[in-house]
């Protein structure tokens, strides 16, 4: 009895970078660091994809400055991806970028059987457009609600409040966004201020590269074969997020000079 003509398929895993390309990113080599970090992460991401054949990792990227545009519009298999450098200049249309992402998270074009997408928002500043409207538009999409939403703050001028809104609330009840452990006197120094459910503070090219590498490998690996979980408030996010990498420049790990 031959196997029927049904389409068995591995599950697409959409990974979308949402990159701030405003003028401030041109300073202190931030845009170069971002390009370098993403480019360097691709081999590791491809290896994770190879190790998880049940997931088809597809990468896209949005850049936002005066306007939000697709930098990499077609969902591209990571093995085929060649990263073209982002260019900095303009203001920070972050809300428009979220609307752009919302449009592709509709079903269709999103596949019925897709894995929860991974959205990585990277910014060094504050939105200059209607961020709330963009976020509301995004979060109307069920796939956005299911998505693993991560945010990386480049330097300490980044608006961690809006990045936290993008991620959603931290169910672990951790430190307020941007608060350094021990700084307020209300939280002990030994308590880590870092959590994947809060904006990741990248203070240098090194820590940025580590976070990008983590998102594109450890998170992609976890999202590729997610365990099901009980509905409702639980001990983890949409997927169980892996531990963050140690970062030399993290305020809790190191007291070295901040580059950004």
């Amino acid at each position: 009895m031959p196997f029927p003509n049904v389409r068995l398929a591995n599950r697409p895993l959409h990974f979308i970078y949402i990159c701030d390309c405003s003028g401030s990113m041109a300073a202190q080599g931030k845009i170069q660091a971002l390009n370098q970090a993403i480019r360097q992460s691709l081999p590791g991401m491809a290896e994770v994809a190879r190790q998880n054949p049940e997931a088809r990792v597809l990468v896209r990227a949005v850049s936002f400055a005066d306007r939000a545009v697709w930098h990499l519009e077609q969902p591209t298999e990571v093995q085929q991806l060649q990263w073209l450098d982002l260019q900095a200049g303009g203001i920070t249309a972050m809300g428009e970028a979220l609307e752009l992402v919302a449009a592709v998270l509709q079903s269709p074009p999103m596949e019925e059987r897709a894995l929860p997408p991974v959205l990585v928002l990277i910014s060094d500043g504050q939105p200059t457009d209607d961020f709330d409207a963009g976020l509301a538009r995004l979060m109307r999409e069920p796939w956005a609600q299911k998505a693993v939403r991560l945010a990386i703050a480049m330097g300490h001028d980044a608006d961690t409040e809006v990045l936290q809104q993008f991620i959603g609330s931290d169910p672990s009840g951790g430190l307020p966004a941007g608060e350094i452990p021990g700084a307020s006197g209300h939280t002990p120094l030994h308590r880590s201020g870092r959590s994947p459910r809060r904006p990741l503070q990248a203070s240098s090219a090194t820590s940025l590269a580590q976070y990008i590498q983590w998102a594109s490998t450890a998170v992609v690996g976890a999202a590729s074969m997610p365990a099901s979980r009980m509905a409702g408030p639980g001990p983890q996010a949409n997927i169980p997020l892996p531990d963050l990498p140690p970062t030399l420049m993290d305020p809790t790990d190191d007291v070295g000079p901040l580059v950004w």
Binding site: P116, P226, A227, S228, R229, M230, A231, G234
Partner: peptide, 13 residues
């Protein structure tokens, strides 16, 4: 549901 991700009803709830 509104659980997101791979959330499902469970006997452990």
């Amino acid at each position: 549901g509104d659980g997101g991700g791979e959330a499902t009803g469970s006997l452990c709830l």
